[in-house]
């Protein structure tokens, strides 16, 4: 359940950034969760409101955008959407697919109030 630590980092970033912007409350936190980041969106959603309690982000909405993993086959050049960590090309069977995206775990936007 490392999503609890992830949620703590998320809330810390949100509250720090809101404070720096002179805002009093965070009402929405948008995150990008890569499919290969090792973070389970449902677990993050579960932990988020608990961690928000007593902070400037209490009651904030968490908007998770899942970033599908994309890669390219080094042999046939086809662009592949990866559903898991297995790096075998579904078109030609070549290995390993070069992963281009899907490992990120980023805060992309906050909505704050004065």
């Amino acid at each position: 359940m490392h999503e609890l630590s992830i949620a703590q980092s998320l809330v810390e970033i949100a509250c720090d950034q809101a404070e720096q912007a002179g805002a009093k409350r965070v009402t929405r936190v948008s995150v990008l969760v890569g499919l290969l980041s090792g973070v389970v969106p449902d677990s993050l959603s579960f932990c988020f409101p608990i961690v928000c309690q007593g902070t400037a982000a209490e009651g904030a909405e968490l908007a998770i955008q899942v970033d599908p993993a994309k890669g390219t086959c080094p042999k046939c050049g086809v662009s592949v959407e990866l559903n898991d960590f297995v790096l075998i090309c579904p078109s030609c069977g070549a290995f390993p697919i070069e992963v281009r995206s899907g490992r990120d775990l980023k805060v992309t936007a906050l909505e704050v109030e004065e």
Binding site: I6, L10, A21
Partner: peptide
């Protein structure tokens, strides 16, 4: 933002502090 507040756009790794 479209609502009452501000939107702060970020590009920040959640584990930046770690």
């Amino acid at each position: 933002s479209d609502h009452d507040g501000h939107v702060i756009e970020l590009e920040m790794n959640v584990l930046a502090k770690n």
